[in-house]
């Protein structure tokens, strides 16, 4: 990441460096591209949420901007009919497995799902899909925060923080397919796991899956290092 490159996002000329991922360049320059799973500092982007599609000039299919390496004179559009179709579909799919009810959600002020809906004019309700069954489990065993899996979007930020930043490794993914969840060893409660309640996962969580209990937000909460611009 040394050679400077000039690129165009929605026609706007932007200075970047070759090899940077387009998503981060766009966000740095105030151009919003929906995203949930992107983690700064993670060497290989996960590419799992499928929301950050952009249209590259000269390329018929949309590509995910978190995996798109910048090259000189790259030109992309953040919107196109195809991009919008995929983003809308991915968003509705995520909502179909997410307990809505924003009014009661502790994260309603910082929810990134709401942000995506607002930015892209998407509805916060299901139009063509049925809500998938989810037996909601709420783990409130930790002293300072609550883990509500029914609102988890599996972005993996909490898992990354827990092991790569704090080096605790209490949280991880388990199972596969529709059963994939963020969980602890043998699904024990957070209080029984190795969690040290640093609270960084709560700050990293883009949805209402992890939230602080009333009045328990640590005063000196660290800056969430996975998202900083």
């Amino acid at each position: 990441m040394s050679k400077p490159a000039t690129i165009f996002i929605d026609g706007r000329k932007i200075d970047a460096f070759e090899g940077e991922k387009l998503l981060w360049v766009a966000l740095r320059n105030g151009i919003y591209i929906p995203n949930l799973c992107a983690i700064r500092g993670k060497e290989h982007p996960s590419g799992s949420c499928r929301l950050c599609y952009v249209q590259v000039e000269g390329c018929s299919e949309p590509v995910t901007s978190c995996t798109l390496s910048v090259t000189d004179s790259l030109s992309v559009q953040t919107r196109s009919p195809q991009v919008d179709r995929l983003v809308k579909s991915a968003f509705e799919l995520l909502l179909s497995h997410h307990r809505l009810g924003c009014r009661d959600c502790a994260k309603r002020k910082s929810c990134e799902l709401l942000k995506i809906a607002k930015e892209r004019g998407l509805k916060m309700k299901l139009t063509r899909l049925a809500l998938l069954d989810q037996e909601a489990e709420v783990d409130d065993s930790a002293e300072t925060f609550v883990f509500d899996r029914s609102r988890c979007v599996l972005c993996g930020r909490c898992v990354w923080i827990c092991r790569e930043v704090i080096k605790v490794g209490a949280l991880g993914f388990s199972r596969r397919g529709i059963k994939r969840v963020v969980t602890t060893f043998q699904d024990v409660s957070l209080a029984q796991s190795g969690c040290i309640e640093c609270g960084l996962c709560v700050e990293a969580c883009p949805s209402g899956a992890l939230y602080f209990k009333e009045g328990k937000k640590p005063a000196a909460a660290g800056q969430c290092s996975c998202r900083g611009g």
């Binding site: 996960s46 179909s96 599996l154 059963k179 994939r180």
Partner: peptide, 17 residues
């Protein structure tokens, strides 16, 4: 759907629907 790894939105949820 059963063999989907569950990582990405489309495969995990799309095949389920």
């Amino acid at each position: 759907q059963q063999e989907s790894c569950g990582k990405c939105t489309f495969c995990r949820l799309g095949t389920k629907h």
